[in-house]
């Protein structure tokens, strides 16, 4: 469990809150796109931004996901038969709807991966408590070497017990937000560049292909 820190280039463009909001604003536009070619291009585009956010993409998983979604859609034939393999018919409409669904959900996950920063503030009590929760999470991760697979539950128990006893010594922590110059910080506060990068393309594609 090594949490390799890779550089998150998007955090230089937008603070967590506008980053999240622009990601959210991209979703309806993305789901309105119904041209397969453009959808594929958008998925790859957001995939690139996930990498720019310093996150890893399990390509194999997403390919398997899209293929299996398409397979289940093909089981319900719709439209012209393209190929017939034994009793299995690949129909145009089913292939299209399956790929649209599989790629659409994959792209949605990519948009989410690119636009969610762990330091995103959640309002209210859950948000406050989440800060504490992340603090303990980091404490457990720091001491994870004390856990052995052989004696998993007993070693986990010891580690957790030490956390209970450390309750009162606990110090306030927050997830480190990258520090930038004040001008850049102000610029990040609105994250307009990220808005153009993340939100604009799907809406533009939708308007142009309508």
């Amino acid at each position: 469990m090594t949490r390799k820190k890779r550089r998150d280039y998007i955090s230089a463009l937008a603070a967590p809150a506008p980053r999240f909001l622009f990601g959210l604003a991209a979703l309806p536009g993305f789901f309105l796109v119904d041209r397969l070619l453009f959808l594929v291009l958008l998925v790859l585009y957001y995939g690139a931004w996930v990498l720019a956010a310093g996150k890893r993409i399990q390509w194999g998983y997403f390919i398997f996901f899209t293929v299996s979604v398409t397979f289940f859609h093909l089981l319900t034939p719709l439209g012209r038969v393209i190929v017939e393999i034994g009793m299995f018919k690949i129909t145009e409409g089913a292939l299209r709807s399956g790929l649209l669904r599989g790629l659409g959900l994959t792209g949605m996950v990519f948009i989410s991966l690119a636009s969610i920063h762990p330091a995103l503030k959640i309002p209210g009590l859950p948000g406050d408590l989440l800060g504490r929760c992340f603090y303990y999470f980091d404490r457990i991760l720091e001491e994870k070497h004390k856990i052995t697979w052989k004696n998993f539950f007993a070693s986990l128990d010891t580690l957790l017990l030490s956390q209970v006893n450390a309750y009162n010594k606990a110090l306030k922590t927050d997830i480190a937000v990258p520090k930038t110059g004040s001008l850049r910080a102000a610029f990040c506060q609105f994250g307009l560049i990220w808005g153009i990068i993340c939100t604009l393309p799907p809406w533009l594609v939708w308007i142009l292909t309508r």
């Binding site: 999240f20 990601g23 959210l24 979703l27 956010a53 996150k55 959900l105 949605m108 996950v109 948009i111 989410s112 991966l113 690119a114 636009s115 969610i116 762990p118 995103l120 959640i122 009590l125 859950p126 408590l129 989440l130 929760c133 992340f134 999470f137």
Partner: peptide, 23 residues
């Protein structure tokens, strides 16, 4: 219920899946 919210939100934030069908 609070614990459930922490679990679901925390996973959504850490894994980055907060605005997707996974969440």
């Amino acid at each position: 219920i609070l614990l459930l919210i922490l679990k679901v939100l925390g996973q959504g934030l850490i894994n980055g899946t907060l605005v997707s069908h996974v969440f």
